[in-house]
Design a protein around this nucleic acid. Structure first.
Lengths: 262, 262
DNA sequence: CAAGAGTCGAGCAGAACTGAGCATAGAAAT
DNA sequence: ATTTCTATGCTCAGTTCTGCTCGACTCTTG
């Protein structure tokens, strides 16, 4: 790039900055300045504009992407590191060529982020997962039908259930609002429960993803009992009562290491 | 059609510019000028025209392709004004409270853009329509299940058909690759045909959206005959043979005024 | 708490870009 | 053949963007 120093279009710079922030987290003005080959002043002006558009937040020395811009506004930001650790562990269970059924919710979304570049089939009613994976050519993506629930970025209803009855997946990765001491998997959003049950029917191996805050947990509606689960991935420690309930039902409990990151 | 040579050249430039922007992101006027071997002034005029047609956004120093129009790469750019006129006419047929089934393809997308703010239910397997309407609180949005076809931004497969068998819509707006003289509705993408047929079954009133370039038209696969249609909206003039075929089958032919915009 | 390094915002000069108007060349129409 | 029309290239004034400098501010370190 030494020959002709083609001036980079402002718009292009903005895109690159946003991409850098999204993939690499917070970035310094000086670093961006070097990467883009423009002066720090220009980077600063770029950040100012992008902040006005609400696309990022400036901090002293640099900028970060806003969490609000990310899906799942309220829930998504909490315990991200924990969820990512769980997701990573879960992703490692899937082999190329297999099919994966992803539940709605944040945890499944974090898992989807770990699946980029894998040669697998992903089936989901999670619209954020769809958006995350739609540009990934390697992944065969199947979207379940249904009514769009904007607040949860999901698809629900009898269409979703109908579709699920026609499918079978090697893995189901399920989220939850909490697990009760007896090993009962609960949820707070009632309309999602029939969909989750249909997913359980369609999944060969059923994996529950639940960070430590979910033990013990609550929820209005019961999704299923421990006998429906094959694996629980968590970042424990989970209470002994729940653990024994799960193990009695033959559920494999996987505990990842990164519990105290938050 | 005054100066044939120049016209072709200009048209070709427009295509090249759009292709460059799609593959390489934002591009500078100077770069485009070099690549195309014309003066910056000419490039600027080209960009002006393309912006008027809504195919790109000009920025200081160059231009970028609009995000929303990214899908439908090749097809989307042609005859936008005509498609919009047809879409507007079609949208006026729908009353609040009704349900609308939208086919895949560009024309249905243009129609979706006209439906903002209407209190209706929209059912579709068109992912661009989904993206267009997902933030519109007034619209009840139902997405059909299926395998994601990235190149066409659509959902297809038996899941889509299954979903459609469970549904009924007041209106179906159908696109086509062309209508044969006998009134046969054709399509080029074979895997979409079963979905289109299922849509016809699910629609109460079936409306075909077809700009004048579709008469007469071709396509590998036959979707349906004129007897399945209720209305055809076009910007004609359509050839007398096709018109009489349609009218004999009891199809209402609606011709919008804006035929000679191109 | 204080010093120092780094960062920020504002103003300024130079460079690049834009839009408008005008001249030219080639094709179509008379 | 002449006129008309369109597309293109060029020039020029006005605008926008960029990099630099300088004083004020913020964060860190001892």
């Amino acid at each position: 790039m030494t020959s002709t120093v083609h001036r980079v279009l402002a718009e292009r710079r903005h895109q690159l900055i946003l991409r850098a922030l999204r993939s690499g987290g917070p970035a310094a003005v000086t670093d961006l300045s070097e990467q883009l080959g423009v002066s720090p002043a220009t980077v600063r002006r770029d950040l100012l504009k992008l902040e006005e558009e609400g696309l990022l937040t400036r901090v002293h020395g640099g900028a970060v992407v806003e969490e609000g811009d990310q899906p799942f506004a309220e829930v998504a930001e909490v315990r991200v590191a924990e969820k990512d650790a769980i997701a990573e562990r879960a992703a490692s269970m899937v082999q190329d060529g297999q099919s994966v059924l992803l539940d709605i919710g944040t945890t499944a979304y974090r898992l989807a982020r770990q699946l980029h570049g894998r040669r697998i089939t992903v089936i989901t009613s999670n619209l954020v997962v769809y958006e995350e994976l739609v540009d990934d050519e390697d992944i065969e993506l199947v979207l379940l039908g249904g009514m769009v629930r904007r607040e949860y970025r999901s698809l629900v209803g009898f269409l979703t259930e109908d579709n699920l009855r026609q499918l079978h997946a090697d893995w189901l990765f399920l989220g939850t609002s909490g697990v009760r001491p007896g090993g009962q998997v609960m949820d707070t959003t009632v309309v999602e429960v029939p969909v989750k049950r249909a997913m359980i029917e369609a999944g060969d191996k059923v994996v529950l993803l639940a960070d430590r805050a979910k033990f013990p947990g609550t929820g209005m509606a019961r999704v299923c009992g421990p006998e429906e689960l094959d694996v629980v991935v968590t970042n424990g420690p989970l209470d002994p009562a729940t653990r024994s309930s799960l193990e009695e039902a033959g559920v494999q409990v996987v505990v990842t290491g990164k519990a105290e990151t938050a």
